[in-house]
Amino acid sequence: MSVETANVRTDRTLSEQSPLGAHAPRTQRTGESLAFNDELHLQAHRWLVDESYLLDAQDYEAWLSTLASDIHYLMPVRVTTALGAGYTTAPGMAHLDENMYSLSRRVARFATEHAWTEDPPSRLRHYITNVRTFRTKNPDEIVVDSAVLLFRSRGDINEAATISAGREDLLRRTATGWELARRTIMVDESVIRMQNLAIFL
């Protein structure tokens, strides 16, 4: 199929393009990925692995405390477009486009006794791999790429569901450790094969 795209290519990040991203930090990566024995990379990797254990255990209160107050947590809708179209996400539409308040509402909901979708709870396993770390112009902020595969099993006999995604995170150093300040989740399917996103990636 030959396509003359009318959509202008843009150099703006997806977080910048989001109608709900005005509050988000804008720090970008610089230079090459860090060596795997670089102290910053080791800290970033450890942070992601620790986070995956929190998410597997659905310890969402603890997870929330690892997020920066200006967090932008974005999972765009992916679309299949012709090669060269210049975009692979649905314009103006995401699966999740969250700030601290909306994330806190999601977490609060799970803490009620009436979040039926997670009662009984899913068995979750977040597999984190392909981690690489970049410096930014800010010495206290780093950008971390990772791949995540989420395995979710619900009920006794239901088939399990999986989601594969790439993530770009902005981590910020604080007095008490690293905080997640921005996450963009590029899910690898245009049709999600999971009954809902009552999970975090």
Partner: peptide, 26 residues
């Protein structure tokens, strides 16, 4: 923007209303 935010929080693939509906229907 605010209307879009309201939609995302309540309905759709990640919506908090929707999550419990689908569990029942499945």
């Amino acid at each position: 923007e605010l209307s879009y935010k309201a939609y995302l929080m309540c309905f759709g693939s990640g919506g908090m209303f929707e999550q419990d509906d689908v569990e029942n229907w499945v």
